[in-house]
């Protein structure tokens, strides 16, 4: 735990969020509030709805019922609210999703120029700053395909940071990486956490959760089963399903 953010204002709140895929109830009455500077790790078996949950926050998925508020902006499905929220929320994907036809630098400058109206020179300055921060500035002129998975994911983090978001969402950022590249990405994320970024991470990296998270949330079948500070979460999980899950996942580590 890096800091207890109890005195900070709420940045994200979800109230009674319901999500259906046809007949499948993907999110069941999810309520969650995230304070500024908080680091949250979401874990749970696959299909438990953790990715769906964070994808609802930046409106990549629509919700059927409930309320999502980000920085005072209610997500009501209108273009205006979606735009306002996406400007403040950065996202990193499992499969990087870098734009393959653009150089690393172009990947980073596109959104600030198009969305924030930043000038080309300023966007480049910004991009170089964040590429430096994820320690990959020397690859700025290369194309994504010329980089390793770990490098690509760090570029993806820099690309999201270039929009200077208030919150970063990570959707299994290390799951598609070869084992030897996991660390460089986690180190980058730990660095971000140290700098006070508000983060919601879907990940199975329990070492990362121990080191960085203020709260660990365990989800199963579309519900939040348990949430606790990492020490309590790992030492004395209350629910049977949490115990089983931790047993399975920690056996591999």
């Amino acid at each position: 735990m890096l800091n207890s953010a109890n005195d900070q204002p709420t940045l994200i709140s979800l109230e009674d969020v319901q999500k259906w895929y046809g007949a499948f109830h993907a999110l069941k009455s999810i309520s969650l509030s995230v304070r500024k500077g908080e680091k949250i790790v979401l874990c749970g078996p696959s299909g438990s709805g953790k990715s769906t949950l964070i994808r609802c926050i930046n409106a990549l998925e629509t919700i059927e019922d409930g309320k999502i508020v980000v920085e005072g902006q209610v997500l009501d499905g209108s273009t205006k609210s979606v735009d306002a929220i996406r400007r403040e929320v950065g996202m990193v994907f499992q499969s990087f999703n870098l734009f393959p036809h653009m150089t690393v630098l172009q990947n980073c400058t596109l959104a600030p120029m198009r969305v924030r109206g930043t000038s080309h020179a300023d966007a480049e300055r910004l991009a170089r700053k964040y590429l430096e921060r994820v320690r990959i500035l020397d690859q700025a002129e290369k194309y994504p395909a010329q980089l390793s998975g770990g490098q690509q994911q760090r570029v993806a983090i820099a690309r999201a940071l270039c929009m200077e978001p208030k919150v970063m969402l990570f959707d299994e950022p290390t799951s598609a990486l070869d084992p030897e590249m996991v660390k460089e990405v986690l180190d980058t994320m730990i660095g971000l956490a140290r700098d006070g970024m508000t983060m919601i991470c879907v990940t199975h990296e329990m070492g990362f959760a121990r080191q960085v998270a203020d709260r660990v949330i365990f989800m199963a079948s579309g519900e939040i089963v348990e949430e606790a500070e990492p020490e309590i979460f790992f030492k004395s999980p209350k629910h049977e399903r949490t115990k089983t899950f931790l047993g399975e996942i920690l056996a591999h580590h």
């Binding site: 930046n58 735009d83 994907f93 999703n97 870098l98 734009f99 596109l110 959104a111 198009r114 969305v115």
Partner: peptide, 14 residues
Amino acid sequence: PKGQTEAANALGLH
């Protein structure tokens, strides 16, 4: 790939 649209959306591109 659909991820391209998602990444563009997540960045707020219109």
